[in-house]
């Protein structure tokens, strides 16, 4: 494992921890998109089917279990926790996320490695992950004033994608992973979606003011 991959995994883990911290510490999920969280839960459940069949390393297994359980826990909190669920901005979180699921499914049925359930699910999870952040970005944009932890959550998620791209560039030159163009495109799309957010995050950090996205 190279340093970029490890940094990517750690920033991904931080993003989840920041989100859990926000929900537990403030007993509030305002500014968090339930739709994005549900999409991530679906991404992890479909991608980590190999937990049942293959063993890669203890590190991989533990991380996969952490991502699956944390995403399910967050969805549960937002839907069912007696206090937290009342803070959910339901009226603003209106992105039609099933269109993302449907689009990813069609792409996965068309472009995959082999036509097996596992490979189609894997491809589906790659496509869906690339766009799963959209409902969250739309919600951020609508809620204007973004609290620090929510801003940091999205920042760490974006950093994770950026590190994964660096990881792929590194692996491209050091290993023989040549024609893996699907994750490249999906990863670039996803990182591009964050570019705008990063810019405003940087401005708020530089000027030491609260993060505010333009209308």
């Amino acid at each position: 494992m190279n340093v970029f991959r490890f940094a990517g995994d750690m920033t991904h883990l931080f993003s989840v921890l920041v989100l859990l911290l926000k929900i537990y510490a403030t007993k509030s999920c305002s500014g968090i998109s339930l739709k994005t969280q549900e999409l991530y839960a679906l991404v992890f459940l479909t991608r980590y089917l190999d937990l049942l069949t293959d063993f890669i390393s203890l590190y991989n297994t533990v991380m996969k279990l952490v991502f699956i359980s944390s995403s399910l826990a967050i969805v549960w909190c937002m839907r069912a926790h007696p206090v937290v669920r009342r803070t959910y901005d339901k009226d603003q979180d209106t992105f039609r996320h099933y269109t993302l699921v449907a689009g990813s499914l069609v792409l996965a049925l068309l472009f995959h490695d082999r036509f097996t359930i596992r490979e189609v699910c894997w491809a589906f999870s790659i496509y869906l992950e690339a766009v799963a952040i959209l409902p969250q970005l739309v919600l951020l944009q609508r809620s204007r004033n973004v609290d620090n932890l929510t801003g940091q959550y999205v920042f760490f998620l974006g950093a994770y994608r950026a590190f994964y791209i660096l990881n792929w560039i590194y692996r491209y030159f050091t290993e023989q992973h040549f024609s893996r163009w699907i994750p490249w495109i999906a990863g670039l799309v996803q990182t591009g979606l964050y570019a705008d957010f990063f810019y405003y995050y940087y401005l708020s950090w530089k000027n030491n003011v609260k993060l505010q996205l333009p209308a």
């Binding site: 991959r5 995994d9 991904h12 190999d50 293959d54 890669i56 390393s57 991989n60 991380m63 996969k64 991502f67 472009f111 995959h112 490695d113 490979e119 894997w122 491809a123 790659i126 994964y164 990881n167 692996r171 992973h177 040549f178 024609s179 893996r180 163009w181 699907i182 994750p183």
Partner: peptide, 10 residues
């Protein structure tokens, strides 16, 4: 395996 992300990644 020319389509997918390496399977050893998360």
């Amino acid at each position: 395996e020319c389509f997918s992300q390496p399977k050893d990644e998360l």
